[in-house]
Structure formats: C-alpha cells, structure tokens
C-alpha cells in the first residue's frame, strides 16, 4: 500500500510517496505564507506525479513546523525523528545528523539501530540557520548561489563578530562600506554559521558517519568548511531537503502495517 510523508518547513514543503521502500514521487515547493495551502498543493502534485489518487494512500505522516496544519495527516511526528529516520535509511552507517533548515538547526545523534538517542536545537534566534544566510545574502545584494560557491583558500575571512542576526546584518553592511571584498565577507558569514553549528554539535558529541540534511546542506562552501573544521567527511544525500519527508514516509509505512 503506498504511503506518504510530508514535511512543511518555514521555507519549503516536501512530499515523498513510497511503496515498499520504492519512491513513487518526490515534490519540493516553497511554503509561502499559508502552510496549509502549501501542504495541499504539494500533495496534489505528488499524487499527479505518482499517478495515484488520494484514497489510495494507506497512511500519511506530517512533520516540520507546519505539521499541525495538515488536516489530512494520520499522524504528526517532529522533524527530529523524521530526519533521523530518513538519514539512517539512506545510510545505515549514519550516527550523527546535522540538519540546518530555514529557521532551525539541529544536531541528532543516532544509535547503531537508528534510534534517536539525543538531540540539540539552536537557541531562539536565527543565527546559524538558513534564514541567517538569506538575510546576509540580502545585505550583500547577492543570492544563495553565490554564497554557496567555495572560495579559494587564499581568500581571507572577514570577521563577523556579532552573534545576533540583526547586528550581524549591520556589521556586513559596514564591512561592505569599508571596502572589504565580497568574497571575504561571504567567507566570514559561512565561517560564522560553521562555528555555530559546531558549537551546537559539540553539545551532543559528533560520531561518524555524519550526514547533513536540510536546505543549507546544498551550500557547498559551507559543507566544505564544516568538513574541514570537524576533520571528518560529511555525506550529503541527493535531495537533502527531502530527508525529513522521506523519514516521515518511512514512519508512515511502519504505521500502515501495524
């Protein structure tokens, strides 16, 4: 029986439809202002892709911030469990998952059986999250693509000392005004997210293998910097954003056979 997982994040919404661990459809759309509408739209698209009708779905698990606003879900599970589940499914060797999403970053520790044994999340503010990168890109009048390009090792790292998104933004603006090269500033921004992430990861401890999920995992510069700082290789799945939805779908499959 086909099942679905849906992950409604602050920036994007993903749906995965599975049938016996085979992926029938995967959809990623921006969440926009109304998470309920986004959920309905993503689900509709995924059903069209898979050629199924809604009634054929045996079980639906919703996750992400918008999980509470999915009326058609059978069960709601946090993105912590879902990212753990999805990451372990893709790579059974994974013991640590770093998920940097739109407004949250989290580090999840898994047991050899794939069970979540500990997790930490960022404190209230958005520093070190996808939202932080977006705000900084905006301050630099650039896009996330440029932010993601790895810079040459010779490029210096501008010092972004402020811990707060709002102050860091004004710091970036003054660095621009002082004539610092853009690539140095970008490197500084990436560095500050990396350091924050590591600070979070140390609280639960990092054990290999490490997988990175969430939209920010696509940022190559950041991933490379993180690998360098931690001294371990990081696995990134093809669609890091969809790992949460995949995990949700896997949980749905477990529920469906109960």
């Amino acid at each position: 029986m086909p099942v679905a997982g849906i992950d409604i994040g602050s920036l994007s919404t993903e749906v995965v439809i599975l049938k016996k661990e085979e992926m029938l459809a995967q959809v990623i759309i921006p969440t926009g202002a109304n998470s309920k509408l986004a959920a309905e739209k993503a689900m509709k698209e995924a059903l069209e892709k898979s050629g199924l009708s809604f009634n054929e779905l045996g079980y639906i698990v919703a996750t992400g911030y918008g999980r509470v606003s999915v009326p058609f879900a059978n069960k709601k599970v946090t993105e912590i469990s879902c990212h753990g589940k999805g990451a372990f499914f893709l790579h059974p060797g994974v013991r640590t998952v770093i998920d940097i999403g739109g407004q949250d970053s989290k580090v999840i520790r898994l047991s050899p059986q794939g069970k979540v044994i500990d997790f930490v999340m960022n404190e209230k503010c958005a520093a070190g999250t996808g939202r932080f990168l977006e705000v900084m890109a905006h301050a630099l009048e650039t896009d996330l693509e440029e932010m993601s390009r790895p810079s040459a090792p010779s490029v210096k790292t501008a010092n972004i000392s402020s811990m707060c998104t709002v102050f860091a933004e004004s710091e970036v603006v003054s660095l621009v005004a002082e004539g610092h090269p853009r690539e140095e500033i970008i490197k500084g921004i990436i560095y500050s997210v990396v350091e924050r992430t590591i600070s979070l990861a140390r609280r639960v401890g990092v054990e290999e293998e490490l997988m990175m999920t969430g939209g920010v995992a696509k940022n190559i510069a950041l991933r490379e910097a993180l690998e360098k700082s931690l001294g371990i290789k990081i696995t990134v799945p093809d669609e890091p954003q969809a790992v949460g939805a995949l995990g949700a779908a896997l949980l749905a499959a477990e529920e469906a056979v109960k």
């Binding site: 911030y65 509470v68 709601k76 599970v77 946090t78 993105e79 912590i80 469990s81 949250d104 069970k115 979540v116 044994i117 500990d118 997790f119 999340m121 209230k124």
Partner: peptide, 13 residues
C-alpha cells in the same frame, strides 16, 4: 512552536 517541536522530539526519543 519551537517549544512544542522540542517537547515532541523529546517524547519521540
């Protein structure tokens, strides 16, 4: 929202 996600994650754990 943030508090609920943390509690839910904890309970699932």
């Amino acid at each position: 929202g943030q508090v609920q996600t943390r509690i839910d994650g904890f309970l699932e754990m």
